[in-house]
Design a binder for these strands. Structure first.
Lengths: 100, 100
DNA sequence: TGAACATATGAATAACTGTTCATTTGTTAA
DNA sequence: TTAACAAATGAACAGTTATTCATATGTTCA
């Protein structure tokens, strides 16, 4: 008794593809997982993942552009946190598939 | 009262990223949408999307490798259909985000 | 068998992407 | 102000990817 799933406009499909591209990188996935529990500064994330500050900063910008994380400034640091309820759901749905 | 979302092994994260990469292309999204309703042959998909047969075939292979579509042979044609319940759910979850 | 058709494959190319390095911007506290 | 620190940015590079063209494989039917 499902509604037919009509194909969205090409424009929307491009946006959708762009969104999934964001999830299609292990570094960004790791960052998102890191933020599942709590907000973290750029430096904290970089250290906890053992990666360059610059790399993390670049990827956080991608996440922010796609409205998946938001920031809170506190002194010199900038704290990032998840900005969307769908993030967890999308990742968990993907995980379901990967884990059979 | 959620369980803590522990970060999966790196190995699993790579697989997860690879899965999302598959969703991160508008041609593959269009193919999957086409298969939402019903199975279709390669030629049908190519024609309905107005793309090269070769392009569709290449992308169907990607979808198949990732266990997202399955095939059924009938004479000269090969009919593709969705092979996973998660496909719709993942796409719809992404659409929710894209459409605000 | 051979012709006609459907699909798959391989090589080539152009475009895109993640990381690094070097530098800049922005903030705090002396 | 300045020094010290945190984060952002830009250019460059290596690696990846989607598409096309040409061709091969596989199937049916006469």
């Amino acid at each position: 008794m499902n509604k037919p799933d009509k194909m969205p406009e090409l424009e929307v499909l491009f946006e959708l593809a762009d969104l999934f591209k964001v999830f299609g990188d292990s570094t960004r996935l790791r960052i998102m997982y890191t933020l599942f529990e709590d907000e973290h500064s750029v430096g904290e994330i970089a250290e906890s993942l053992g990666m360059e500050q610059s790399t993390i900063s670049h990827q956080l910008r991608v996440l922010r552009t796609n409205k998946l994380v938001k920031i809170r400034r506190e002194g010199k640091q900038i704290y990032y946190s998840l900005d969307d309820d769908h993030v967890k759901k999308i990742i968990e749905m993907g995980l379901d598939h990967v884990l059979e």
